[in-house]
Design a binder for these strands. Structure first.
Lengths: 192, 192
DNA sequence: CCTATACTTACGAACGCTCGTTAGCCTTAA
DNA sequence: TTAAGGCTAACGAGCGTTCGTAAGTATAGG
């Protein structure tokens, strides 16, 4: 359980790491954004890398919790996959800064945190693949492994350009992606 | 026209920037990889950022040259799009380090190079969108803008995981992606 | 209610080190 | 004789982090 002040520091760090990058953000930059002196941060945190870890690990928890919620209900496989894509997009859009750090800055973690991160990400991808496999079970030409890679690749890229203040809500974007991914972009007639 | 020695420096810088990141790679790291002393690099280059720019700008040229080659021949729209996706994947797979720097480290460019980079990238995406638009002209439910975003998002992510030494050749990977993107992942019968 | 004690949060200075870059000198080959 | 390409040494700035200290707040004992 982190104190309220520490949560503020983590949130500000996520913003700065996302916009400037982890190594290009100094502890004094972070302190200045919080109206503190550089050394004062260390009343709350152990190290700069701890901040990176807390941001990245919390994001991993968000992704995994979302998948658990999606698979808990008893819906048809295609609907479950649709919910998972919506959820994945939602986690990213909900905290874009954290998602950016999760996708872009994780590699600056050192061991053993780096391995811990990778294990959680592998776990997430494996669970996601099971959902995809169930949805494409009647499509013999589609390999669930590559379908999963395609879906997660397309959606992970969101953090590079998505603007939460823009006109496109996350669910609407997800539905557009889902329609194209499910039925292809070469559709002579509209989806019924 | 860069000298042979400078090309070596650029290539090594691309490797290091890709694996460690731009800001986490010091000029002394780069010099050591080339069996030089730190200061000696400056006989060949003006600054660290010039290296970043040369890598990123060359990659942009590769992408644009590929698109020009693809659109030069007189093929049906769908085949042109297929060639463009193959080409995009090919440019990434051909020089994974340069592609990684192109996608991951460009934001550390300062003005005016940052704007120059973004202009070239916008140009590329606009040309790609025209190819997509021609291919999906008979698919009223598909917006070329979002189809382009989907295709480029999925393929850009390649640099995160693709291993040129692995068992999957770039063209084969591209064809798998194209099949799913064109016809969707929910296909009760195989594509004829 | 008052006081003693401890805890929290911050300051400001400093530590040892690394950063990108520059200057001047030396060697080699054309 | 010149020029290219390497060396060593150094510059000022900034890095993450630690330190001693102090003010403010909460808690507990009498």
């Amino acid at each position: 359980m982190e104190s309220a002040r520490k949560q503020e520091i983590i949130a500000e760090a996520a913003q700065l790491f996302a916009t400037r990058g982890y190594h290009a953000t100094s502890m004094r930059d972070l302190a200045k954004a919080l109206a503190l002196q550089g050394g004062s941060l260390y009343s709350h945190i152990d190290s700069k890398e701890e901040l990176l870890w807390l941001i990245v690990d919390e994001a991993a928890s968000q992704f995994l919790a979302m998948l658990h919620a999606v698979t808990a209900s008893d819906t048809p496989p295609e609907a479950t996959l649709r919910d998972a894509v919506r959820g994945h997009v939602g986690v990213i859009a909900n905290d874009l800064a954290a998602a950016t750090v999760y996708f872009h800055e994780w590699r600056f973690l050192t061991e053993p945190r780096r391995s811990a991160f990778l294990a959680r990400r592998r776990d997430y991808e494996a669970r996601f693949r099971q959902i995809v496999a169930a949805a494409v079970v009647d499509s013999p030409a589609v390999d669930p492994k590559w379908a999963t890679t395609l879906i997660l690749s397309a959606t992970n890229w969101l953090y590079q350009w998505y603007d939460p203040a823009g006109p496109l809500p996350p669910d609407e974007l997800a539905d557009r992606y889902i329609t194209m991914l499910f039925h292809g972009i070469l559709m002579p007639q509209p989806v019924p």
